[in-house]
Design a protein around this nucleic acid. Structure first.
Lengths: 207, 207
DNA sequence: GTCTATAGGACGATAGAC
DNA sequence: GTCTATCGTCCTATAGAC
């Protein structure tokens, strides 16, 4: 249960109950989008899971499109913190150049974080597919995300001593390997030990 | 224009106009699903592209669900032939054990075939994401497809002399690498030369 | 902040005429 | 084989009461 607090003592950084209902909506939407995609999502389903009406949901997020945006922003914030934490650095360090971590460290941190939250990984896998089309409301987000990830992996490659001319390819190949293995894992979670298989794969890649 | 033919001379192997309308519907659906996914697809859009009514579309394919099944079966048939042809073998050879082709050959054939048909690749990428959920009408299809592909790559690995204990992992890693790179390519087709990047990646993988 | 009510469409599917 | 007409349902979103 979220603690109650009156308006007087509430700074910008304190979560009130108003925010907690919103968070509940975002959490419900996260799970539903992971299973049905954005085109398959209905506001009604979100409302049902939160035990309020459709009008209630729309009051908090504005529209179905803005709900998607809110979910992605929310996850981004959490995931950046989780990644930085696993790397043992500050969040700001994720943008530093040169990166204070190598390619292998970055991969391990990413894989371990993802292995711990299959639902979120599936959310991104489903949306990444849907958002390939330019008309999708999350298309621009995923183009941006790709650029940011490439930059991150290129800087990590640099920190690992990868030759400048090979950094882009190396970053892309590394991301491809992780994403591809991830997809295999999502398809049959029991058959694939994601972390273990990644370790083998990494040994081959970084030999 | 498809040639016309009367019923009398029509064996099972000859396409009539009735079939060509169906093919037109499947072609339209293929493009639309590639862009919007199955949940985003509407029968109305298919009808518009074929310049007939919704009732007309449903007359040919039965229902929206069966339309998806028909599209996937249709593509499967074409793609197996395209792959076998590039490998210089008969379609039946794709199931042979041991495979009459190695892992590297299989990869090159697959990548070159896929590079030539981005729309189809995107169709599978979008559906693969959507179909992760068990309720999706193509879920079972993709589970089956994964098993068939694994078997194919494992047999090719065997033909390449990969140790029996490593074949499963090798197959999975290889498929992961191709799929992952493919996704990068689909996200920004101009920035990634799929065939070229794959060659570099393969050199690293098969070193 | 949550509700009821409802607008205003779009949806998949079927029946039956031609 | 394609049409028109229609059913019943679902959809997002808004207006306004409480």
């Amino acid at each position: 249960m979220t603690g109650r607090q009156t308006g007087a003592s509430a700074g910008r950084r304190i979560r009130l109950d108003r925010e907690s209902r919103r968070d509940q909506i975002l959490a419900a939407a996260t799970g539903l989008i992971a299973r049905r995609g954005f085109w398959g999502l209905t506001v009604r389903e979100v409302a049902l899971e939160c035990a309020i009406t459709e009008a209630g949901v729309l009051h908090h997020v504005g529209s179905k499109d803005r709900l998607l945006t809110a979910v992605l922003e929310y996850r981004d914030r959490l995931d950046r913190h989780a990644l930085a934490s696993r790397l043992g650095v500050d969040v700001a360090a994720l943008e530093a150049d040169p990166a204070p971590f190598g390619l292998r460290e970055l991969c391990v941190a990413t894989v371990e974080r993802n292995a711990a939250q299959p639902e979120i990984v599936q959310l991104y896998a489903v949306l990444q597919g849907e958002a390939l089309a330019a008309e999708h409301p999350a298309h621009d987000y995923f183009v941006r995300r790709e650029r940011i990830a490439m930059s991150l992996f290129e800087r990590a490659a640099a920190a690992s001593g990868v030759d400048a001319a090979l950094r882009e390819t190396t970053a892309r190949e590394t991301m491809a390997a992780m994403d591809g293995l991830q997809l295999r894992w999502l398809t049959d979670r029991d058959a694939v030990d994601f972390v273990r298989e990644w370790e083998r794969f990494a040994d081959r890649l970084f030999a």
